[in-house]
């Protein structure tokens, strides 16, 4: 029979936390799917526009920039592809990243009510968040495919690699999100700061304009921004261009995988502390 011991944890074994976390992720696979299914169903059952909202924000942002560019209000360097395609692909991929950053906190926050009452594998919340993310992402990618065909760029074999890039983007986003979540659950300020900060971060990432050619603050920022290779590589795979950021992409992912595990361990460790503060 399984024995559980609850006591003040004096010794901390990161490895034990990882393995417990991974074990729970596996054990709760039905729960995470069920939670994702529940939220997606409920979301679409109560709305007529449904899927439209999944890509409304990125499309709106892209449209603004397309208008700015076409009207000559803002002069942008050549992007090597029809600008609308550049803008749409940029904002859609960017929205995947930002959603994955916000996802762990959102999922956990919306489960506050049951977190303080029922003991279940909390990792299921993270995983269900990822499921929802992948669902939305899938729709966005279909839309992106339509754009690619519409602008006559043609289909490239690299499209097959898009899922890999997207999973990379989700891993990076989730890792960042996991690190923010514990504090974010305690203070609502964090959520505000993140939403606000991400708006600025978008302009330090080649989302609606290309990487500047000449050196400067923006170029330095963009080069060292870990999200740059994610956006560029994913866009490359979609459109079939080459921007030589694949190497950096791999480095970023390789760094994120261990960080993701640490994030999961911290998450696991922090939930009881947070639950106590939520319900005290």
């Amino acid at each position: 029979m399984e024995t559980k011991v609850y006591q003040k944890n004096n010794t901390l074994s990161l490895f034990k936390l990882f393995s417990a976390s991974l074990k729970d992720i596996y054990a709760s696979r039905f729960l995470s799917r069920q939670l994702a299914e529940r939220d997606i169903k409920a979301q679409y059952r109560q709305s007529y526009l449904g899927l439209f909202w999944a890509f409304f924000t990125p499309l709106a942002t892209a449209l603004v920039w397309i208008v700015l560019n076409n009207s000559g209000t803002v002069r942008l360097t050549d992007t090597g592809m029809p600008y609308p395609l550049f803008a749409f692909s940029g904002t859609l991929i960017w929205s995947i990243v930002t959603e994955s950053i916000k996802s762990p906190m959102q999922s956990t926050n919306s489960a506050r009510g049951i977190l303080t009452k029922i003991n279940f594998p909390k990792e299921a919340l993270i995983v269900s968040g990822i499921y929802k993310l992948l669902f939305n992402t899938f729709i966005k990618l279909l839309l992106l495919l339509v754009f690619v065909l519409f602008y006559g760029v043609g289909l490239s074999w690299t499209l097959l690699l898009v899922p890999v890039a997207v999973i990379g983007a989700v891993i990076v986003g989730t890792t960042i999100g996991l690190f923010i979540t514990p504090i974010g659950l305690l203070y609502s300020d964090i959520n505000k700061i993140i939403s606000f900060g991400l708006q600025f971060l978008m302009y330090a990432t080649p989302v609606v304009y290309a990487l500047p050619k000449e050196d400067g603050l923006l170029k330095t920022l963009m080069t060292y921004n870990p999200l740059t290779p994610i956006i560029l590589t994913t866009r490359d795979f979609v459109v079939g261009t080459v921007s030589n950021y694949g190497y950096q992409f791999l480095i970023v992912i390789a760094c994120c995988v261990p960080l993701l595990l640490i994030g999961l361990a911290i998450y696991r460790l922090s939930i009881p502390i947070i639950v106590e503060r939520l319900s005290a």
């Binding site: 399984e2 024995t3 609850y6 006591q7 106590e276």
Partner: peptide, 14 residues
Amino acid sequence: NGLINPDAGKVTIK
């Protein structure tokens, strides 16, 4: 129920 951790002492549940 394991929702929060004790500050002292120990619970063993089988």
